[in-house]
Design a protein around this nucleic acid. Structure first.
Lengths: 215, 215
DNA sequence: GACGTATGCGATGTATACACTACGGCGATG
DNA sequence: CATCGCCGTAGTGTATACATCGCATACGTC
């Protein structure tokens, strides 16, 4: 396994809270886990550090970035600044084929049994990622993905609280609808509304003492 | 030298076009240059890769990220999305002491002879960075700094074309004025105007065939 | 008993050595 | 003469080994 692949595997593990925020990362353990020495593993950690997903303290190793509620709110503010403006260029570049791909992804999500929330969340993440990649603005996408990666563990932690899956599913459908209609303003508004709702629900969920993680 | 310090040193070298965009980075040479082995150097490169400042291709090593004019425009669009909204929180957190620090920085820039454009650009970069750090939004700052780092080599390449230094100096003074007045809207507008002007000038400068870099 | 100090272990940080890969040049071959 | 294939070299990728550091435990001292 190469450093880039290890980094991807670690991102996934962080997303799924297999490695929760605040967790210290033991290089020896992870290296054995991925069947490599510590050298490529450390390089993967440096990559994630550059993206802000882990923090490396000299002599102490790496820790998964932990977010306080205010930071989650800040990150949602960044999403509001970054994502809706992409609507115009998404509409400009989207092809029939792309819409179909996204639609099948939403279909897949719709038929997933409630048990497999991890699969659903993963598909939901990929949906957003692919949607934004359609804008063909790679730098914007890189920043957006960085932000999405940071909040993803918290989104999943509260996935069961964040509105019914049906409601989210409906939002994705509205996105597809906007894509099909070719109306940039509508897409802009749908994206913005989705983020606002997500922020609202997530921040209140994190505010509840019983839902807060221990430390 | 530690990997983080090496990364900082490399960022500076990239900013100053000592290592220009597109340049392949020889690990042996750089390691010797910084007096370390290739291990910590590679880790520094991975950090920069996570920030988007270099691109690592497996088996081929690292190359300083090269931007086409459209990409520079895209990055300025991101600056417009990210920086002006910080005005409110900058005003909320700024202290007398901070304004004085920024003012002395601007003073320093004002008295620099035209010869030392590298020092001037460096101070200009630090001015923006410190200004945004006042917002106390570390995630926003991280993204903004990433964007600034990417465009910095191009800003400096065309530094002599980008309006007279006097005009830029005046913009910095306007920023200070807005800070002192405590008017968030004014600061917002000053920041936005500065970015718009910068984009305009830089993009047209890059559009000129004779100013384009070779490859 | 409390505090400062020594000591051991677990873990990180990095230099060295070696395997492998990409690439350019050379010669053989048609 | 063009093309293909074969080294040779430069440079990347990583496992191993060792130095070092931080922290916890135990000890000694006051």
């Amino acid at each position: 396994m190469r450093p880039d692949e290890i980094a991807s595997a670690l991102r996934r593990a962080v997303h799924e809270r297999e490695i929760p925020p605040g967790q210290a990362l033991n290089q020896d353990v992870l290296a054995r886990q991925y069947g490599v020495s510590r050298i490529p593993l450390r390089e993967a950690l440096r990559t994630l550090a550059g993206e802000g997903l882990v923090i490396m303290k000299p002599g102490l190793g790496a820790v998964v970035t932990e977010l306080r509620p205010e930071e989650v709110e800040e990150l949602y503010g960044l999403r509001l600044s970054l994502e809706p403006p992409l609507a115009g260029d998404i509409i400009n570049h989207v092809r029939r084929r792309d819409i179909d791909d996204l639609a099948t992804l939403v279909e897949t999500m719709a038929v997933l049994p409630p048990r497999q929330s991890e699969e659903w969340s993963s598909a939901n993440y990929r949906f957003h990622r692919r949607l934004y990649e359609l804008s063909d603005h790679k730098h914007a996408v890189r920043l957006v993905v960085q932000v999405l990666n940071l909040v993803e563990p918290y989104v999943r932690m509260h996935a069961h609280v964040l509105g019914s899956r049906a409601r989210l599913q409906q939002r994705r459908a509205a996105t597809l609808e906007a894509l099909r209609s070719g109306d940039a303003t509508e897409l802009h508004d749908v994206i913005e509304a989705a983020i606002r709702n997500g922020r609202e629900e997530l921040v209140t969920a994190m505010g509840r003492p019983e839902a807060r993680q221990q430390h």
